[in-house]
Amino acid sequence: MSIISISGLVKRFGNVIAVDNLNLNIAKNELFGLLGANGAGKSTTIKILSGLLKPNSGSVHIAGMNISTNAFDIKKIIGVIPQDLAIYENISARENIEFFARLYGVRGKTLNTMVNNALEFVGLFDNQNEKPKSFSGGMKRKLNMACSIVHNPEIIIMDEPTVGIDTHSRNQILESVKKLKNQGTTIIYTTHYIDEAEDLCDRVGIIDKGKLIACGSKEELKNLIKSKESIIIDTLHIEQQSIEEIKKLQGVLSIIYDNNYLNIDSDNLQSNLQDILFILFKNNVDIKNISIKKASLESVYLKLTGKNMRY
């Protein structure tokens, strides 16, 4: 039984289609990753799910309620962790959490307990009386998260919660996400970090130009590409002629050149590698690095969108 059901969702901004006929079902207690580059339509989808934007067409049902008629009730059971920080810098961390908890009608002793739980959950209990203006970027992100989960929502929508923070804080946030999942919360996690999606999510949806181009478990997605390994060559510059020559090699399934990275899928990697290098040397292509990678979400993403997300 799906707790979130999206059907034929369309959102336009003038002539630009931000979300294009999106269909998606998310099960209860699932950690669903929405993977896509900047401007792919992730945040717009999130805004529609949080009741901040009205779609042009299509429907969204959350916990059996239609968002266009029951947005107010839906808001009570969801928590949204926005991409940008949404906290008050001039009041203490505790006051921030208390304020947003109160907006959900939490009060009295329950408020105190829930605020303490949220502070402990994100690891800011010892800093509760400090003002966020003195916090590091990672601590601010944690507070941002605490403000969104303090009311114990059934569904949490996270819009790129780890953007722009150090590795240590990022790992702490990712651990928190796993803990929330273990507590039985349904989570929608948008990101453009492929490793995060691969590490965290039960299922991943790849969104590009507003369209959901693939959706499934990591294994299901990896099965979408034929080759199990790819050759990645980091070049300084490459002529189209070299690419065409490599394409003609027997066994080469696909070749994508993006941001100076040449990504080649082949079903005969060992024999193709020699020929590829020969072509590149012959055409005086400067090579910075060569690596062979097993099929991953990154190669799936590259194969499906033609874009290299890391760079």
Binding site: L52, D73, I78, P82, A86, I87, E89, L103, Y104, G105
Partner: peptide, 14 residues
């Protein structure tokens, strides 16, 4: 500017 209004709007507040 600080998106706190957006956070208020995703809460069940009219």
């Amino acid at each position: 500017e600080k998106n706190t209004l957006t956070r208020m709007l995703v809460a069940p507040v009219r």
